[in-house]
């Protein structure tokens, strides 16, 4: 008896053998950059990023690097926060809450009781107001950024590109990636947007410029 694999591949080949038309080359004439923006105009790219984040319900703080610690101290809750390995310690110097390390990995039930998670990111996209996490230093594993109710992400200005086409080439698909565009949301009830379902209900982005 032939395997399902062999059968399916044979069916695919048989189906394609009878086709007369060969498809043409794939056109790539869509924009490489966010529409209406000069990608070299960094101020415009960052402004768009902030605007899009706010539009989708995130809180945005645009700060100078010297002020990160103060802003984090104000933006984080008093309770506890998961802090992944590699997250710059000086940024939390002024925050007085409990730092929870995820080493060894905390059980999901424990992560569920933590108030917040702070991370960096691998890339950010202005056009769609997107953060991309790849589990690299300062970003933690996926469960840690999912169960706490507040996700605070620190983004360096030079990580922000204007569009998805600009971002995708630099990302490593072998790593598990989480693309976050605003907080968890649903429109399943009468198409009314409700912010905050299963993922973190609040998303705060600290954009570090200069």
């Amino acid at each position: 008896m032939s395997s399902a694999r062999d059968d399916i591949l044979a069916r695919v080949r048989a189906a394609n053998a009878t086709q007369r038309a060969e498809p043409g080359a794939v056109p790539r004439t869509y924009l490489r950059h966010a529409p209406g923006i000069d990608p070299a105009d960094r101020a415009a790219v960052l402004a768009l990023f902030a605007e899009r984040l706010v539009e989708y319900g995130a809180t945005v703080h645009r700060v100078r690097s010297a002020d990160v610690a103060a802003v984090l101290a104000a933006a984080l809750p008093e309770g506890s926060a998961v802090v992944p390995g590699g997250f710059p310690a000086p940024w939390l110097a002024e925050w007085t809450g409990a730092v929870i390390a995820d080493t060894p990995p905390l059980p999901a039930g424990r992560l569920d009781t933590v108030d917040a998670v702070v991370t960096t990111c691998a890339a950010a996209i202005a056009d769609s107001g997107t953060l991309v996490l790849d589990g690299g230093p300062g970003q933690g594993r996926r469960a840690a950024t999912l169960l706490p109710d507040l996700h605070l992400c620190v983004v360096q200005a030079d990580q922000v590109v204007s569009s998805i086409p600009e971002a995708i080439g630099a990302l490593n698909p072998r790593r598990p990636l989480t693309w976050i565009s605003g907080p968890s949301a649903t429109a399943d009830i009468e198409m009314i947007r409700v912010q905050g379902v299963h993922g973190p209900r609040r998303l705060t982005v600290v954009l570090v410029e200069g």
Partner: peptide, 13 residues
């Protein structure tokens, strides 16, 4: 859904 990106996209290999 009329969004620029859905809130979450997960990719894994």
């Amino acid at each position: 859904t009329g969004e620029r990106m859905a809130p979450y996209t997960t990719t894994w290999t």
